[in-house]
Amino acid sequence: MEYVNIFVKSLFIENMVFAYFLGMCSFLAVSKKVPTAVGLGAAVIFVQVITVPLNYLIYKYVLEPGALKWIDPSFEALDLSFLTFILFIASVATMVQLVEMIIEKYSPSLYNSLGLFLPLIAVNCAILGGSLFMQQRIDAGVYSNMGHVLTFAFASGLGWAIAIILMAAIREKMEYSNVLAPLRGLGITFIVTGLMAIGFMSFGGIDLNAFNKKPELKSADEKTEISEVAPASPVDSISVGSVTKRSL
């Protein structure tokens, strides 16, 4: 059941767009039409599912303090974690390039729909952000195996895709509305995103331990879990905290 837990949490409560503002640049730039939004959303899920587990392996076997001892026990004291950023971004960029070439070779139809978006994704913060959150949560002991990481990768990508498709649908409708001149375009998009984020906050009230089999530990579990998962960012710890208080 912990997988369902991670899935729901990454998809709704810790949605990449509405809770962490990741991938905002492409979220705002490519959300004008639903079909393109679907394409970019699919590409993000695809790349996220490939790169986050890959970076998990890199972190586990190269970067973590003492991770290199599989080569030689004398490397036990090495700590390469300061190289995290450069290795993660390098693996993201190479994977994106590789995936693009492979798709181009073997599936031209998929390439025609996704290919355009793949270069955009190398610099999408949601992708690198996913890997960095994964690293942070592994350090905090929230995720402990490949299954957790895969679930997180898929759910966070899906959350991003859902967000951009919803946004594109709203913006298509908004073409016909009479928006104040200074707010037209970018301004109203920000405000609509803000209102959607308020809507997504209500998912914070979901009692994830309803999925668990031991209901008597419910409230205590919920509290510790959320305080562990909540990242160091003050915004989100506050939002999650206050919502939990209300739901309890």
Binding site: F21, P182, L186, G187, F190, I191, A197, M201, V235, S239
Partner: peptide, 14 residues
């Protein structure tokens, strides 16, 4: 302080 208001604030700034 919460996440959504950051978006609204930037919207208002624009």
């Amino acid at each position: 302080i919460l996440a959504p208001m950051a978006l609204l604030m930037v919207g208002i700034f624009i």
